[in-house]
Design a protein around this nucleic acid. Structure first.
Lengths: 241, 241
DNA sequence: ACATTCGGTCAACCCTGTTGACGTAAGGAG
DNA sequence: CTCCTTACGTCAACAGGGTTGACCGAATGT
């Protein structure tokens, strides 16, 4: 191959099956492939087959599989935060941010799982950080507290979302086995050795559903409590459970 | 292969190079391998080479690569929780659990990145779950709430720890570049476009340190508040900030 | 001492990502 | 309109991955 991907494509040559390749089409097809047949369906060979071209043709557009994944991830980030504006209620606004980030990640689990902990210091992220800290400032927190608390909040949201995405990106048999574990393994335990688990036995199957919302609500409760304890203006967004 | 892994090993037969295989030795070697050469260094063939045995001998102990990964994860949990017994103060005990899990993950950053989000359904994990739910039951929560809240708590702890571990597992140049970016990129921003970030500018360099403790404290505050709202027996562990 | 079965070894299969060589068609230059 | 260059689609091949079935020697319970 040797030829590096040019910044702008000049010549187009139809593939054997007549398709005109492009970076856009490849990313698009990759996302479709993942969406339809699961994350494990993304491989160079399969992607080539889906595009109707030789697998190695992709190396004319991405010098690496990782390069392709990053291209996909880059697009996801842009989509996630698009068109969001915070409202008057700072608690509700933070909740919305959390849900948006999570939705963006879950929409494309595998790419998200790969790029989750890579912090892109780009414009969309910077705007989100500014927005979140701004919300905590209007909540009445001191600048230092606002910065610290925002970090705790967004880190929790991001790592939770990444965890969910990682789970969803698991090969299907393993994913389903993990889910079944709560129903099977955790059901047949010796009551005397595991008294607490026995007491909550009926609740365990629900454990597979994750805890994103609950964790976010707990955090928002704590933040709201601290804010009102500071005698600050309270966005009293519906917290509680 | 066909023979499933027996619950207890009875016979030992030395490998061609004289090593006596065991589940313990295999997991141990796998952790060393990952620790030295990264998560991608874990393959059946390489592990066999490191152990001085035929790669397929491992299938006598783990019926699957995934099975091995789960065993590794469970061992990390076991190491982290070893010798821990919950005290009277349920809040303090949960805090200790959180710190222990985090320490265990950070001790094996690269392995943690591989196994963090899995349900190992093995002994060490089951014991930890039983312990945690037990603490919330003594706090006075109903079984269903105890199960849900424990999940939210431990998921947050695990995903935070995994995020920290993933960051720590990054190649040094990338890791340091990410840290520098906080100081560089976020310092030279236009005040009118990013007013909140400008207001907390002095606090930003500290953002690189992470937020594990703060997030845990926020969660514990919220849990304690809910518990006392339920009129429950309160372990009033020192919460607040 | 014998029969059983555990478990280490070997060969093989099919999947990956990736590379280098090859040739063809596209596009600019004259 | 022709020619030359180069983009890029194709092909064959390599290295490495997980997993399986057959083989059979050795360790163990009887």
């Amino acid at each position: 191959m040797t030829t590096r991907v040019p910044p702008e494509r000049r010549r187009r040559r139809p593939t054997r099956s007549g398709v005109l390749l492009s970076e856009e089409l490849i990313v698009q097809t990759a996302l479709r492939l993942i969406g339809e047949h699961g994350p494990e369906a993304l491989s160079v060979r399969r992607l080539g087959a889906a595009l109707g071209c030789d697998p190695t043709a992709l190396y004319r557009y991405f010098h690496d599989t990782d390069d392709l994944v990053l291209a996909i991830a880059d697009r996801i980030i842009g989509d996630a935060m698009e068109g969001f504006a915070p409202g008057d209620d700072w608690v509700a606004s933070l909740r919305q941010m959390a849900l948006r980030v999570r939705a963006g990640y879950l929409a494309h689990p595998r790419a998200a799982a790969l790029a989750a902990h890579r912090v892109t210091r780009r414009r969309n992220e910077i705007r989100a950080v500014d927005m979140g800290i701004g919300l905590l400032l209007t909540a009445g927190f001191e600048p230092s507290a606002a910065a610290r608390l925002y970090l705790a909040f967004i880190d929790t949201v991001l790592s939770h979302a990444a965890a969910e995405a990682a789970f969803k990106a698991l090969p299907r048999p393993q994913r389903e086995a993990d889910q079944r574990a709560w129903r099977n393994v955790y059901q047949d335990l010796d009551p005397s050795t595991y008294p607490a688990l026995t007491a909550v036995r009926q609740e365990l199957p629900g454990m597979a559903d994750g805890s994103f919302e609950e964790a976010v609500e707990l955090l928002l409760e704590a933040l709201a409590a601290r804010a009102s304890r500071n005698g600050a203006a309270g966005g009293v967004g519906a917290v509680g459970g």
